[in-house]
Amino acid sequence: MSRTTNIMIAGVGGQGTVLAAKLVARAAMDAGLAVRSSETIGMAQRGGSVVSHVRVSDGPIDSPLMARGTADVLLGLEPGEAVRCLPYLRPGATVIANAHPVPPVSAALKRASYSGEAMLEYLGRTGARLVVVDGDAVCTEVGSPRVLNVALLGAALATGALGFTTAQLEAAIRESVRKKFVDMNIQALHAGARAAGAGPGAGA
C-alpha cells in the first residue's frame, strides 16, 4: 500500500505560497517520490486567497487536487486563510499557522472584526495539532518580510509532518531560488523550525 502525504498551503497573494509548494515538490522529486501539485494563478497577485495543493507519494497519485478531509498538513500563511481550509483537514492533521492576520478590505470597510487570536483559538479547538508561528518575529530575525513561506515550511519540518529532512529542504532551496536569496531562505527555514519548538501549542 502506498503512502501519500497531502500538503495544503494557504495564504493571500504575494505571501509566497507558490514557492513554498515548489520547494516541497522539489524535495519530493529529489527523493524519487511521485508528486502532483496545483495552484491558483491569475488573480493571485492581487491580494486574493491563494491555495496550493501538493500531493507526495511513494506510489502513483491520480488527482492533483486533494479531497476534503484528506489534508495531512496545512500551512496557513495567514490565520484566516487557514480557517477557510479546515474542511480539507483529515482528523489529527497538523496545522502550522502564522499568528498575524491580513484583514480583507471588506472587513476594513465594514469595520467588521477580523481577529487573528479568535481564528487561532478556533483552529486550536478543531482537534488538529496546531503550531502557531510568530511570522513577524521570524521575518524580523531573518531580516526580510519575504521569508514567511519558508519559515512556515521550517516549522512544519520540525513537527515531522512533512516527511522530509532539513537537508532535503535545504537542497530544494538551493536548487529553486536565486543564488543571492539562498542563505536568507535557509536561515528562515531554521528560524521557523526553532519557532515551532518555542511557539504556543507546539508539541501537542
Binding site: V12, G13, Q45, G47, G48, S49, V51, C85, P87, Y88
Partner: peptide
Amino acid sequence: EPPPVRGKPPMLC
C-alpha cells in the same frame, strides 16, 4: 454540496 471554501477576493493593488 458543502458550500465552496470561499476565499478573499482580489483587489486593486
